[in-house]
Design a protein around this nucleic acid. Sequence first.
DNA 1: TTTTACGTATTTGGTCCAACAAATAGTTTG
DNA 2: CAAACTATTTGTTGGACCAAATACGTAAAA
Lengths: 244, 244
Amino acid sequence: MAVSTVKGALSVDTASPDGSAVDHVVHQIRELIAQAGLKVGDSLPTERELCAQFNASRNTVREAMRILKAYGLVEVRPKVGATITDNRMSRAIELFSFATMEVSRKTFSDVQAFRDLLEVGSVEQLFDRICDRDIDELHSINAKLAGIHDLEEASEVDFAFHVRLISILDNSAILDVYNVMKPIILRIMQKGKTRRTFKTETFSEHEGVIEAMSHRDRLSFQYRLRTHLMTGFKYFNEEMEASA
Amino acid sequence: MAVSTVKGALSVDTASPDGSAVDHVVHQIRELIAQAGLKVGDSLPTERELCAQFNASRNTVREAMRILKAYGLVEVRPKVGATITDNRMSRAIELFSFATMEVSRKTFSDVQAFRDLLEVGSVEQLFDRICDRDIDELHSINAKLAGIHDLEEASEVDFAFHVRLISILDNSAILDVYNVMKPIILRIMQKGKTRRTFKTETFSEHEGVIEAMSHRDRLSFQYRLRTHLMTGFKYFNEEMEASA
DNA sequence: TTTTACGTATTTGGTCCAACAAATAGTTTG
DNA sequence: CAAACTATTTGTTGGACCAAATACGTAAAA
């Protein structure tokens, strides 16, 4: 505290919550963090201190902390108390690991078109940065497809391959987005495939992409990768085309 | 209940949490939802029923419900109880509206490179779909820059312009990702700019992009948009290059 | 008799309190 | 230097009360 009596209309405005005591405490804690300029790693007051400070019961404070924890903004260990963190990205990932929604035809084409823009579209920056270790590691990741036991595992390997590919770009925005979308991408990868499909088709498609990379063959890279991304589209039938 | 004594290893596996009672209840509630096949709009048992069902105290159940609420999976109103929802996307957006982190040089270049891949890279698909209404609406959005009063408002208009641009693609994956990243993008847009910058430079850069679109001039579109995205990079100094 | 309106009782989430269990950091003791 | 102890702090429980929303039954009106 001390600083910023004026702070007011700046960035931290959570607007006014719904008036519930818990939301109010959440708001106050966030204000506290902002005003005290707490950074990642710093400690928050103990629950009971917060109770006294905000005139709230311990349960109310605890529910507020649950929210902050769920948002990945604080980490709390018994005895040591709560410390500031920033796991929002991983929380966002967990968010979408829920609710096993069915992948629609439109979802498939949207997501794959999106990935096409990122993976195929970044060919120039990618080829600028490629080094031998990238090629080697892509090979070794892809080799794991031979030993997979179920679809889940196979799609994990497939995903790891593509993450390794774009990691060459050294762009954390892209990497973060990929991780957020991971659950959806995994489902897309599994759609219509069998273990055998992964071991044969997917494997050789990946190998083709790697070969194009090692030869620095832009056109081949783009063609092979694009084709690879669109494999699986055939497994979607045309049903339910018009959905509002 | 009734169905699926076998269900076991399917999709809903939240793995086993850290063993805390609250996490356990969260897990059980999610299992309950899955097993009972509850859809959005359906009701959950009352808190007290959940207490009895899971042998947990009411506070524990409430903390679990706080988590589900924070995840945007349930909505709870006094007296009527908890109903299933799916506001995960809006929660994800809220997630990143927090913690007014400073935009680093690397964040800037990463995010803008990312946007470059999406916006500039999609020129073919974009030009395939463009219609007159798109051009008109882009004009009218951009016109709002003349009447802006502060940076916040200006960046909102700027953002709206780019969202409208990519909305032509009719790709909800891209749109969702853009919305999730909105807070970060807004900050990037504000970096180093003034109201005047928006009213003059940003405005005319947008107009240039629109003009290229209306002429179906691919090269001009790409050049102008790419230049526009990289405007602002000059406001970052080299400080703090090596951060682990 | 039927329908509408009102008021009461019940249900349900929201908040608070007090107490105990478990885990851990720091301190003391061998 | 290591082990045991102590105090502190989170984790969990059970209970209590309140306020608001709903359900229902009763009374009044058509």
